[in-house]
Design a binder for these strands. Sequence first.
DNA 1: CTGAAAGCGCTTACAG
DNA 2: CTGAAAGCGCTTACAG
Lengths: 347, 347
Amino acid sequence: MMMNSTKKISMKDIAKELNLSITTVSFVVNGKSDSISPATVKKVKDLIKKRGFNPNSAARMLRTGKSKTIGLIIEDNGNYFFGNIAKIIETEAHKNGYNVFLSSTENNDDTAKALINKMKNSSVDGFIITATQGIKEEIDKLKKENIPFVLLDRLMPEVETNYVILNNYKGGYDLTKHLVDNGYERIGFISIHDGMSQMIDRKKGFLDALRDASKPFPEKAMLEVSFRQSHEEILETIKTYIKNNPELDALFFATNYLGVMGIEAIQQSNLKIPEDIAVVSFDDNDLFRLLTPSITVAAQPIREIATKSIELLLKIIKKEQKQVTMVGEVIEPTVIIRNSSPKKKRA
Amino acid sequence: MMMNSTKKISMKDIAKELNLSITTVSFVVNGKSDSISPATVKKVKDLIKKRGFNPNSAARMLRTGKSKTIGLIIEDNGNYFFGNIAKIIETEAHKNGYNVFLSSTENNDDTAKALINKMKNSSVDGFIITATQGIKEEIDKLKKENIPFVLLDRLMPEVETNYVILNNYKGGYDLTKHLVDNGYERIGFISIHDGMSQMIDRKKGFLDALRDASKPFPEKAMLEVSFRQSHEEILETIKTYIKNNPELDALFFATNYLGVMGIEAIQQSNLKIPEDIAVVSFDDNDLFRLLTPSITVAAQPIREIATKSIELLLKIIKKEQKQVTMVGEVIEPTVIIRNSSPKKKRA
DNA sequence: CTGAAAGCGCTTACAG
DNA sequence: CTGAAAGCGCTTACAG
């Protein structure tokens, strides 16, 4: 009564104090109290509350093999899209009693591999992974070891598994068709060339829309940079590209941060959007909405993507869904038409 | 050889296979092999690599009481500032062998409390916390229980502990002085009124700068909204405020997302920055940099804040730093002067 | 309705 | 230089 010892209390302690067995305590703690008399249940519950008992998660984990934590591996938590995805996934996870280990790969294979292995050793119950290109082996191993996971945002070529992705093809197609419908004829395409599935699909959508509209697409109107390049390098590359392609009347940026850098490059090239060049981009954010002119985008429904992926993972963990089969969600993008791509004035 | 069993291998397995004791295996796994013959060490290491053995973290955790994970509780992972803070902290934590549980409070006391308790039960070795207003009790309990933690971004009134914060007073003062120096006379101040320390300090800096310049500050030029209001409500409130204060020639936004909403409100009010009204904001982001005109800001050195806080926490965990004393880092902000606050033209 | 006991996979004092 | 053994705090089949 005098001193509240700081030592944590255990089931043994409360069993002893109540002259009960640890078994009984364990049963009521875990709600398996069907076979326990109501009076006993009450006694135990009361003392637990009074003493502030919480079961030791390490012991439970060791015994059951379940950690009630999931590993979330994304590309870049500092990016609007992924930061918000992560926030929603965490919130949903907590609602379901799970903690989440979060980390960013920055699209680096070695980082991704290290992260997966570290979290495997920390016994996560499952993963949500935004895959980098070179981790097929780790993903295959996850499958072989029967560790639940779902792929987010992009697929791995030749790996059948659960996934939640955007309909990137449609986003690419629709955004391009919008440009064509508004009279743009020579559209440049700026993307990442590291072979990620979402980028491939966006490009395919773009090219198909041009083909369907019988618009040409000269080789030099394609600019593909690498994720590994620095901000400055990419900025310079885009500026050079703009200078070397003066005939372009519109630019399609295949991703969020490329769009941001593209706008910076256009500003520094002293070109005006949309008078000198129209702009559309994949992904939405505050910048695109508030810029003058505001930027037309193919927005990803962030909440839906996040919710579906944690729901799917939880189903797999609870064995309501098989890991091995190729089951997934394809979420539809929304084209938001703003002021960066108005109907083109005749030259 | 034929079938690789999927079952995880344990120290016992490798001890048996080598005719050694578990003790010996444990020693080499943990690098306490001073007393083990080099030959034995090699044998063990080779087999570990061959079998792909990894120590069971739950067992280790149960035995040692250390989980090698830290709990990171921030305001909003979807926000530029916090998303990047989290990314850097995670990266540094992993370098030091720690995983991190991440979650966002959205500035909600109940969420914050639930998160702290959940993570305590999950036996994190320490916390980095962006405190909400009403969690003094939980913070005090953390101190009493001797759980390492550091407060990030804002202090708790009347709680002495370790912290890493920005020099918010200086940011508020310098940004205001910049405005005054450029000839602005009637400056409006838009902030959050939930009593958080960083907001109080920014306001104090603002008011002191005005006082030092002998500029008046009428009561009605102050707008303080609540974190709990929706995006739409805040937007409308700011628009009304702008309409009711037509004499203002400059606006000071005390935070990132308030600045973003403020710009939206100004746009919707058909006012021009800076001709009709100048603008400065706390925090930097892509939007402020790329907008026309670009926005003058007091930027927080994100990397420094993040690195210092994880370094400090690790020190406390390793007992190189006492928890109880009030020790912390105050990071200096940088005023970045851009085009939203030019020298004022004479009316 | 309740309990005794094994065991999850480690670490670590102690013994030799 | 190496090993036998206790114990961290749970869960769970089994017994009564």
